[in-house]
Amino acid sequence: MNGQARGTAEMAAAMTLAGTIGWFVVVCGRPVLEVVFWRCLFGAGTLLAVCAAMGVLRNHLTRRVLLLSVLGGVAIVLNWLLLFGAYARTSISIATAVYNTQPFILVCLGALFLGERHTLDRFAWLALAFGGLLLIVQVGPGMGMPGHAYLIGVAMAFAAALCWAIAALVTKRLAGTPPHLIALIQVCVGVLMLAPFTDFSHPSAQLSTWGLLVVLGVVHTGLVYVLMYDAIHRLPTHLQGALSFLYPVVAIAVDVLAFGRRFEPGQMLGAGAILVAVAGMNGQGVWRRARKALSPARDA
């Protein structure tokens, strides 16, 4: 298997696994803060073993890497808390759709703080995603969900996307740092942040619950990070973006199949608009490459 084929398989596996996170969070039935704490703790153990095996702890852990990774870690942990909290107030599907506005938030932050320039078509996709978000908010919850809780859930999912974009912006400053090390520092930050607020006096008595928490840490954090970051080194950006589209598709499919979730017509339209916008922006690299490939033929 060549490098790109391996990267494609790794990214597809990582995004498919990530799409099932909502099921584990909902089924485990524990408070969100507790879920994120144990995810960070079990994930830290896995990533520590990976980083030690790769020998990156000694050569790359500088003060600058530590400080920036800690800052990104705070944003990542807040992102998980907000997104997992949004599941109960909206649904996995709606929260995931709103959460997938993250690439557009990153575009705006990059323009504001890094002076990045973006094309008009990117802002057109941004407008489409924003329109989808407004439609989701205006349609209302449906399925007997309280309206105020639904709106809070939508706001939490959007805030989670903002936190993710901030973490991504910080990580851009760490070019050349092994991503597994960054991820390790981030989950360690989560353990330290949440330990004072985690109730250790009433642990779950269900072995199945602990199994779900271990999977969230070892598989959805440790393994997914390893697969995703190795794939990033092997794949061009446009393929990374296209494959990342698997995450919301799998998450919505899990919500429909496992929990019988059904969209209201307006919600379906709004979620569809966001996903089409994400697909459109991720597909720009493919179209640019196709135009470049065709241009010599036109000039011949």
Rank of each mutant, 00 (worst) to 15 (best):
31 P>I: 08
33 L>K: 06
33 L>P: 00
34 E>K: 11
35 V>P: 10
35 V>C: 13
35 V>N: 13
36 V>C: 07
38 W>S: 02
38 W>H: 12
38 W>A: 04
39 R>G: 05
39 R>M: 04
42 F>A: 09
43 G>T: 03
44 A>T: 01
45 G>P: 02
46 T>D: 00
47 L>V: 02
48 L>T: 13
48 L>I: 05
49 A>S: 03
50 V>F: 15
51 C>G: 10
51 C>L: 01
52 A>Q: 13
56 V>A: 05
56 V>G: 09
56 V>N: 08
57 L>R: 12
57 L>E: 04
58 R>P: 05
59 N>E: 15
60 H>F: 12
61 L>H: 02
61 L>P: 01
62 T>H: 03
62 T>F: 03
63 R>A: 15
64 R>C: 00
64 R>W: 03
67 L>W: 09
67 L>R: 11
67 L>H: 00
69 S>K: 09
70 V>C: 12
71 L>I: 12
71 L>Q: 10
71 L>R: 00
72 G>H: 03
75 A>N: 04
76 I>W: 01
77 V>G: 01
77 V>I: 15
79 N>W: 01
80 W>S: 07
80 W>I: 07
82 L>G: 09
82 L>H: 08
83 L>H: 06
83 L>T: 03
83 L>G: 02
85 G>H: 05
88 A>T: 14
88 A>E: 14
88 A>R: 13
90 T>I: 02
90 T>H: 05
90 T>R: 04
91 S>C: 10
92 I>D: 08
96 T>I: 10
97 A>Q: 02
97 A>S: 14
97 A>D: 01
101 T>V: 15
102 Q>E: 12
103 P>I: 14
104 F>E: 07
104 F>G: 04
104 F>D: 06
104 F>H: 06
105 I>G: 08
107 V>I: 12
108 C>Q: 07
111 A>T: 08
111 A>P: 09
111 A>G: 15
112 L>S: 11
112 L>D: 06
113 F>G: 02
114 L>H: 10
116 E>C: 08
116 E>A: 09
117 R>G: 10
120 L>Y: 01
121 D>A: 13
121 D>M: 11
121 D>L: 14
121 D>F: 07
122 R>I: 11
122 R>H: 08
122 R>G: 07
124 A>I: 14
125 W>M: 14
125 W>L: 11
126 L>W: 08
126 L>K: 03
127 A>M: 04
